[in-house]
Design a binder for these strands. Structure first.
Lengths: 231, 231
DNA sequence: GTCTATAGTCGGATAGAC
DNA sequence: GTCTATCCGACTATAGAC
């Protein structure tokens, strides 16, 4: 199959080496410096391609940035996609009980923790997202639609079902506090490292963190359930 | 004598206070763009002072940045200082029981929530801190020593005391999840706004958030306590 | 203390050879 | 598709008038 690299559409083409290398380098350089402070010279150098390849493949710095954000969104999406599908499917079937909802919620949180805390490449991708949280650009729509909205939606539904309450504002807020418990370990990594005297997150420490978060999730869900029988 | 200038200055132009105006403008501009991307031109313009005032008062852009970080650290410190002193004092006295520890923990979290979620000027200061979390510079020491370490320390101690356990790694991790529940509302504000259809955080919404976090804190602490009697 | 003017550097993008 | 050379604008900092 012949791939049309450039010509009119930067979206149709992927397999060019320079194209892919620029995306990977863009994740690191935009993540480290932010859009404005990142220079096309740094990115091109890191990618090992000529600076002129950026306007050539991506119509300029801004086009590269949007492509990088979409690339990152796809990576993050792939970490939770199967669990999100599973949840969606079970919700559609309509016979989800509290116990299973809690179990699906735990599975989703585990997905998040394993990636956000336990994966070596998470920091690279997370930095792009966090920068967009800090000061959203036009690229934020991509992140919101592909990651944030589906995650909040799924977690809120599972919280509501697991606590036997309706899908309310309160369920949404509880979902966000659950997300907060996970992302704090990514956002405040440097603080964690200094405060706890860690070097990074070892598999054992990741397991400890997972244990604490899941335990708190279970006890909170249990305490919030108005009846304590099973559905 | 105050000389009335050509009015690039938005606010009535007090020319006597270039130093303070540069700090305030620096919070906004460094917060919005980051150190590298922020320009001394933007800051000087926003402050309504001449660019040359930056090297004059702060020995250059970097000196201004460090001064801004210290200024922000002081502002944040002042939000929790009295509660931190109170905790320190009670710990030193040595007769803190579980109930009082929980109450002090709640007070500290309330301080955080009221400022981080409920205050209109929190986003300005938080952005500086979040950028340093994202990619710590040499200025991070100021933030860590004046804010992060004292907060984590105090929360961990109160968690350990309130759960009747010793001050362990687990208590530290639980402290961080509590912090995470608060800061997610600051970090992911844009996501919150979109997902919940809010415009910002009204006093009512702040109260709802406070209710959810404090309720979860109480039930979690209770569930984690090995004995359920009252000390 | 505050200003203007300017030096010196580095940014993104393009043209055109190959 | 990839390169070199180059334009032009914007940056920080300084010198020196007032």
């Amino acid at each position: 199959m012949v791939v049309d690299r450039k010509t009119t559409s930067p979206k149709g083409s992927y397999s060019s080496n320079a194209h892919g290398r620029l995306l990977e380098a863009g994740v690191d350089v935009f993540g480290k410096h932010g859009f404005d402070a990142a220079t096309t010279r740094m990115i091109a150098k890191k990618a090992g391609v000529n600076i002129a390849a950026i306007p050539y493949y991506f119509k300029g710095k801004e086009g590269l940035y949007h492509a990088v954000v979409a690339y990152v969104a796809g990576k993050l999406e792939s970490q939770v996609k199967s669990t999100l599908y599973e949840i969606e499917g079970r919700v559609a079937e309509g016979n989800l009980d509290r116990k299973e909802a809690l179990s699906l919620l735990e599975k989703l949180l585990e997905n998040m923790i394993n990636f956000m805390v336990g994966s070596a490449e998470a920091p690279r991708f997370a930095r792009i997202v966090l920068r967009e949280q800090l000061y959203p650009s036009s690229a934020y729509d991509i992140i919101f639609n592909r990651i944030m909205a589906p995650m909040i939606n799924a977690i809120s539904k599972m919280v509501a079902t697991a606590t036997g309450t309706s899908l309310s504002r309160i369920a949404n807020l509880r979902a966000l506090t659950l997300i907060g418990q996970v992302i704090v370990f990514r956002v405040a990594r440097e603080t964690m490292v200094r405060a706890l005297g860690l070097k990074g997150y070892s598999p054992e420490e990741t397991a400890e963190i997972r244990g604490v978060i899941l335990e708190q999730t279970r006890t909170t869900i249990e305490a919030m359930s108005p009846l304590n029988g099973n559905q």
